[in-house]
């Protein structure tokens, strides 16, 4: 197990290494070059020249790359052009909001996705199954941000049931501890803040959950159908085990293996979706930072965010692989 983990960790290193080269090259390909990108379009030629000297753009390219790598590894992504604050600071401030949203969405997707996929498989070809399959296909076809709009339109504009945007009502004075709004209220005893944060969380997390939900339902369904036809299930049946035991111990447990991998792979989609969802609901997380960075062409921030998203994605996949090896020992040998 340890050997597998170490090997898998080492495999991630070249990926991250080449990724850093690509991001470095990307920064140099930006319109007007890195100095203009960092200073903004309105920079005078003198300032650009000065910035070039500061950035050491006269040095050999290899030297420049390793300087960039060194800065990145120490978490120095430069300062945002919009706020002037270090990108790292902004990112760590906004990260808990995105984490909260993504975890809530994934929780909903798993909570409803696995049972629905299982039920669909049990009633294969019947109405319930067809309805489920069609629902998931539509779920994939609906743009996440449009679903957000739709939910917002129905539940806030038409029914006034839920708050339209943000993470807290303006009247609520919540203390920030971890930055995860629902958790903070519990930690400080401000239960009204937690309740308020949860109300704010409902619509964005439902919108964001739509795609992982659809994928989880379909994988669970396909996987259960696969396992149901296996020899060991027939053996378990014929040796007289009750249907319940066969389903729980033999079918479900084996069917959930591919589902667990899928959940990991959904992280990337979840991040893409979070960017869009956060814009619809003015969430104030990483997606909001990214959206502002795009609007204002804030390249230092954009670069920091893209690196961060990619690193998180690589790490999550690493964790998924390792957990998969724990669940299924066969993976370790390969």
């Amino acid at each position: 197990m340890l050997r597998f983990t170490v090997r898998r960790l080492l495999q991630a290193v070249p990926t991250l290494f080449v990724l850093s080269i690509l991001v470095f090259a990307w920064l140099r390909m930006l319109p007007g070059g890195p100095a203009t990108a960092l200073l903004g379009d309105k920079a005078t030629p003198e300032r650009v020249a000065a910035m070039n000297a500061v950035l050491g753009l006269d040095d050999p390219i290899v030297v420049q790359y390793f300087r960039f790598l060194g800065r990145t590894l120490t978490g120095d992504f430069g300062n945002s052009l919009i706020t002037g604050d270090p990108v790292m600071e902004e990112v760590s401030w906004a990260f808990p909001a995105t984490l909260e949203l993504s975890v809530a969405a994934m929780f909903l997707a798993v909570l409803f996705g696995i049972p629905m996929g299982y039920i669909a498989a049990r009633f294969r070809g019947r109405f319930l199954d067809n309805a489920t399959v069609i629902t998931t296909l539509v779920g994939v076809a609906v743009p996440v941000f449009f679903l957000g709009f739709l939910l917002k339109y129905i539940f806030t504009q038409e029914m006034s049931l839920l708050p339209p945007s943000g993470r807290h009502d303006v009247l609520i004075d919540a203390t920030r501890v971890t930055g995860i709004a629902t958790l903070d209220g519990l930690l400080t005893g401000e239960f009204d803040a937690t309740w308020d944060a949860m109300l704010h969380l409902i619509l964005p997390s439902v919108a964001l959950a739509s795609i992982p939900f659809a994928v989880i339902v379909r994988i669970t369904r396909a996987s259960v159908l696969d396992v149901q036809g296996e020899d060991f299930v027939r053996t378990a049946d014929s040796k007289g085990l009750t249907t319940q035991i066969v389903r729980k111990r033999h079918v479900l447990r084996n069917a959930l293996l591919p589902v667990s991998t899928t959940i990991g792979l959904q992280t990337g989609l979840l991040m893409s979706g979070a960017v869009l969802t956060e814009k619809v609901f003015a969430w104030g997380g990483l997606g909001t930072l990214l959206e502002q960075a795009i609007q204002q062409r804030d390249y230092p921030r954009l670069q920091g965010l893209i690196l961060l998203f990619a690193v998180v994605f690589v790490l999550v996949n690493l964790l998924v692989d390792i957990s998969y090896a724990i669940i299924d020992p066969r993976v370790r040998v390969r």
Binding site: L30, S272, F309
Partner: peptide
């Protein structure tokens, strides 16, 4: 394949965003 792994390691929309940011 290493190259495609890297492209896959960037969430799809962010890959599109980073390319769109380079071009007019």
């Amino acid at each position: 394949m290493r190259l495609t792994d890297i492209m896959l390691s960037i969430p799809s929309l962010l890959l599109a965003i980073s390319i769109a940011a380079l071009l007019p």
